[in-house]
Design a protein around this nucleic acid. Structure first.
Lengths: 334, 334
DNA sequence: CTGAAAGCGCTTACAG
DNA sequence: CTGAAAGCGCTTACAG
């Protein structure tokens, strides 16, 4: 590399300003009440003259505060699959960029981990983040070592209540209820639910399903579940089964599935919403964009991301922030 | 927080193993040739007994190697817009997750910056990353301070040649050529190009356009440009203009635009590809998923991400890795 | 109000 | 083959 001037350190600033590095350090972190006005001015002047920027690595080591938030997303991306067959749920990108914005606004930087389960432990332990956000984590994916470390752990959309962790999620049962209520109110007589329900009570899709089922039971309407992973393709493939079962209203666990289902139904010559109503989940940007645009459940992502950062900054073990979902009516329902 | 055992340090390992911390450090970084077999065994045993994990912050400070790669993505996300109107190009998510996988495979962690231009300078300077990947950066977005710092800079899909930086990109001109050649070979008589061409020769869309134009000129076929930002909505809105101009083959600068255009054309009762052929760019997962599925230009993302990490590890200033694009034929062309 | 000094947990010549 | 010591660039009581 080309010869370059070394980056100035706090020592350089101190020397130039004729003060000690302790004083510079105090000024830099805004403890200006403890330092006289002229000294502050002198230091700030030198800081900008020299183009000094604090070395966060050194700061983190000394203060034990890194202002880094680790984000762990498991299973969003399957390295075993060729890229062209990856079907990354756009939710993860939306979530990440939105969280990054909120984090930076508050002076934090995001570190990303998106590998497979077994290995995120080391990542969390060796990178001294102030907090870690675990997205969609299952109990079996959470090594007890992590649960016991002194890292602030924030579980996002996870079904793992533990008084040592913090949780942010949407009221998923209510989301399922809202979806079913709306379909029934628009005249649907036989409902279906498409999502990854096989994992039972601890999974998000299952909770959405159980909310929908509760409403159906109360209304004397039948609901049939179709166990499918969150992916466009899976939604598409389930279309035939929906028809065979004479279903006229479908609650899905994700907009991606719903978009696939709508396409699948259209391929079979079925009119949506004329013959079958479909309701998505998440209110992703794509929900507006597909044809017909999707009626969906907004999971309140903006609020959730804010809640995550609130907990990063001021949360206590056991804290739970549950956001209420909201129905967004578009064209895929009657 | 609950009372917890402190994390063991290299000192604890050294004490337990009865050696100096220097020896432990050597063993941990695989310099086992310099240490006797029994000592290595003894140390490794204690490491796993104590559950010792290296503190990368301290390691980075001492060695000046953080094994962190900073990723800077400008303008993918607009914080000023409400989330439900965000139209984040899924490309960014795909790119990020794919790069994360490749980085982790090689022992690196990703840090993300996705804010606005002016502020990424501090981020880059205060977080001592080993290298920074700047995605789709324009000359005016690159402060000279960054260009001059001793950070390894890798420009991705950027049009900023400088012998101090490294570059990874697709041969964009060739991509445009391939697209136009194919449309013409299938019988299209009048072409259109939709993309953000207004920035001229230094922008990626413009290069794609100029490749297409070159082929058209050689074949005596006309091509009209439609200046649109990369977004589904924009593709949709341009449909009417395409028809007014009697165009029967469209090259686009992105799959998202192409998907919007196809929907827009269908809304107007036009058959794709029967009446108008449309060709995308990027070969995103969504290109397979929309109806009709998109013929598109694969930009070789897997190769590009590999090239990025090659440069992070072994690149020299001025290095350029240019990946050749590839035509992927699906249903949106004749 | 300001500074000297110890310390954060590592790495790196260098001496033996 | 192994260890003592200095140092990375900060922060933090504490003394004056």
């Amino acid at each position: 590399m080309i010869e370059r001037r070394k980056k100035p350190t706090i020592k350089d600033v101190a020397r130039e300003a004729g003060v000690s590095i302790a004083t510079v350090s105090n000024v830099l972190k805004g403890k200006t009440t403890e330092v006289s006005e002229p000294t502050v001015e002198k230091i700030l002047k030198k800081v900008s003259e020299l183009g000094y920027v604090k070395n966060m690595t050194a700061s983190a080591l000394a203060s034990r505060e890194s202002r880094v938030v680790a984000v762990v997303v498991i299973g969003a991306f399957d390295p075993g699959m060729p890229l062209e067959h990856q079907d990354l749920n756009p939710f993860f990108g939306d979530f990440l960029f939105r969280l990054e914005y909120e984090a930076r606004r508050r002076g934090y930087t995001l570190m990303l981990y998106a590998g497979r389960e077994e290995k995120y432990l080391n990542f969390l332990l060796e990178r001294s983040a102030d907090a870690a956000v675990l997205v969609g984590i299952n109990p079996q994916d959470m090594p007890s070592v992590v649960a016991r470390s002194d890292l602030r752990l924030i579980l996002f959309d996870s079904m793992l209540d533990d008084r040592n962790q913090m949780n942010v999620r949407t009221n998923e049962i209510r989301g399922g209820e809202i979806a079913a209520e709306y379909l029934i109110s628009t005249g649907c007589k036989k409902l279906g639910f498409v999502g990854h329900v096989s994992m039972g009570g601890k999974s998000v899709p299952y909770l959405r399903y159980s909310g929908a089922k509760k409403i159906c039971d109360e209304s004397g309407i039948s609901i049939k579940e179709f166990n499918r992973v969150t992916a466009f393709q899976q939604g598409m493939e389930v279309a035939a089964e929906i028809l065979e079962n004479g279903i006229d209203g479908v609650v899905t666990a994700a907009d991606t599935i719903a978009a696939g289902l709508v396409d699948g139904l259209r391929d079979q010559g079925i009119d949506v919403p004329g013959q079958v109503s479909v309701i998505g989940y998440d209110n992703l940007p794509l929900a507006r964009l597909v044809k017909p645009s999707l009626t969906t459940i907004d999971q309140g992502l903006t609020d959730k991301v804010g809640a995550v950062m609130d907990l990063v900054e001021n949360g206590s073990p056991g804290d739970l922030r549950e956001i209420e979902p909201r129905l967004v009516i578009r064209e895929s329902t009657r």
